[in-house]
Design a protein around this nucleic acid. Structure first.
Lengths: 138, 138
DNA sequence: CTAGATATCTCCAGAGACTATAGGTTTGGA
DNA sequence: TCCAAACCTATAGTCTCTGGAGATATCTAG
């Protein structure tokens, strides 16, 4: 049996975060030692690794909760699982698109500023003040 | 003079958000009507548009606070302004990089799932469970 | 001028996903 | 056996808003 600290070291998830996941219902309430400390078995380690991996991929807590619930019915068809992942892929793509537009605009703003003139004339400040200087909508 | 609702309509910033910006020190405390309601002048409109624009670009409140402070000394050189914008550009680029890696991995996971088999065998679930199935580090 | 509708005021709580602190208890090794 | 490290619970804070409650102000129609 692993202590919460052991589990933390093995998964890279911080101790308070593990307790938080338990509170949020992603991890089952752990067994306890005689002195009331949490003790974990291998399944808990796997479950936490699953959660960690899903979080790293940017899935939010409620999506993960749903995936866990689905994974406990292994003989059902996996359409919902696929949908969750595909939806998330779409939202990641949307975010990338938005950030690329930001990148372009920031680039445009920054490259017109040599950092060596007065704030009064600074393109960065002027761009922020005047939306009309933007190329694209946002 | 504009009411807070007028200002909201003109800038697209919600009323409670305007009050929040005032509380955070981005907007000066507004003048008040006899009945204690906020009244805004044209400068406030411009300032709020500046804030909105900077937020749309992803700059955080403290960066905006700093930019506003700098913009009030128009005769100083603009090196710091440039630095804030350039730092932000870098962080946007970093975010894009990370998201692209996620995109790749999610794509890989999703395309191997046809949504038409059992959860037991689902590649999405298996990928999340087993980090070893990933192509790249993350 | 007054009634009623709309807008505003302040204060407080909640969102999401943690993170940190305080004050106390248990555990593991020398 | 003793002590430091790890653990426990409970609570509050992070960041950027957003929404609600209950009270007050302003505007419009009659």
């Amino acid at each position: 049996m692993l202590s919460i600290g052991d589990l933390s070291k093995r998964t890279g998830v911080k101790v308070p975060t593990i307790r938080y996941y338990e509170q949020m219902g992603l991890l089952a309430a752990a067994e306890r030692s005689e002195g009331n400390q949490r003790r974990y078995a291998r399944q808990d380690l796997e479950r936490l690794a699953f959660i960690r991996h899903a979080r790293d991929l940017g899935l939010d807590i409620s999506a993960i909760r749903e995936l866990i619930a689905l994974s406990q019915h292994p003989h059902q068809p996996c359409g919902n699982v696929d949908r969750i992942a595909a939806d998330h892929l779409k939202s990641v793509r949307d975010k990338i698109e938005k950030l690329k537009k930001l990148e372009e605009e920031l680039e445009r703003i920054v490259t017109r500023c040599d950092g060596d003139h007065s704030i009064e004339d600074c393109y960065v400040i002027r761009s922020l003040s005047d939306h009309g200087l933007c190329d694209s909508e946002h």
